[in-house]
Design a protein around this nucleic acid. Structure first.
Length: 268
DNA sequence: ACCCCTGTTCGGCG
DNA sequence: CCGCCGAACAGGGG
């Protein structure tokens, strides 16, 4: 599920626990999500700390605990964050459960493509890798120039594939990449080397607009952007292009290993 | 049963 | 060394 806006939505789900102390931790014995930090190290490192704050950056999340303790979370393909009553038992795919006084914080991830890390720092700052993440679409560092330069590095790459590269477009995932191409009316297969400067500027602008609206609508309460977005039409075979007066049947096909949806007329 | 999947990483190849 | 690309990871749902 999770791209930029969904990640922002999930980040906030743990907010009810802010300010409380981690009393007990449960980890799933077979969870692959702990591949970089052993589950035992997470239990040991977090127990007794206080949950202070949360942050999202692209598809990454960082949860700050007292003692300069930082819990990094990536939701992978099927991860979600939720709360549960403090004494509830973990369900089958609940890999990490932090029991606080009034609430339990749950990380659930059936497919286990997600990732959990725990790190200590000694300067009150988040880990270096977090601070060095590339600028998100709405950050000041995400400039027209940056988008142009990034695209020029990969002239043969289809623009849809470029949008999925987290080094250049952190937070953009499969549906947002297709949405950006559709709203720009460019074919997802178009090699970035064939995009002129004004088209790359439009890519910058559209990426920012769609990120802003998705965060506002989906990131706050999982709202619906409405039927004027491709998003609501792309999932099933036989979907119709929602552009006013178009009515063309959308195409769904594989592009570089990812399901891609576009309108053969608007984006021809 | 069979096919699909909103993500990332790895290894082979040219 | 670089970019491209398919496979792999793993389980639920249609």
């Amino acid at each position: 599920m999770p791209e930029l806006a969904e990640v922002e939505y999930y980040r906030k789900q743990w907010d009810p626990g802010i300010g409380e102390t981690v009393e007990r931790i449960r980890t799933h014995p077979a969870a692959r999500v702990f591949r970089d930090t052993p589950a035992a190290a997470i239990r040991r490192g977090l127990e007794g700390t206080r949950f202070l704050a949360s942050h999202a950056h692209g598809k990454q999340m960082m949860f700050a605990f007292s003692g300069d303790t930082w819990l990094g979370l990536h939701l992978g393909m099927s991860g979600e964050l939720k709360t549960a009553p403090p004494d509830s038992l973990p369900e089958k795919h609940d890999h990490l459960v932090l029991a606080l006084a009034s609430v339990s914080l749950v990380f659930r991830d059936p497919r286990m493509f997600g990732k959990v890390t725990l790190e200590r720092t000694d300067d009150g700052e988040a880990p270096v890798w977090w601070r060095e993440l590339p600028p998100q679409p709405l950050d000041p560092g995400f400039t027209k120039t940056r988008v142009r330069d990034f695209a020029r590095r990969f002239p043969k790459t289809p623009v849809k594939t470029l949008l999925l590269d987290q080094r250049g477009f952190p937070g953009i995932g499969n549906w947002m990449a297709d949405e950006i191409c559709w709203q720009m009316r460019i074919a997802p297969h178009l090699p970035t080397g064939e995009m002129d400067e004004s088209t790359l500027d439009a890519l910058w602008k559209t990426t920012r607009r769609i990120s802003r609206e998705a965060l506002r609508v989906i990131g706050t309460d999982w709202g619906d952007p409405g039927d004027t977005w491709l998003m609501n039409h792309r999932w099933r075979d036989g979907g119709i292009c929602p552009r006013r007066g178009c009515k063309t049947e959308l195409v769904r096909a594989d592009l570089r290993g990812r399901t891609t949806c576009w309108c053969p007329v608007c984006q021809g």
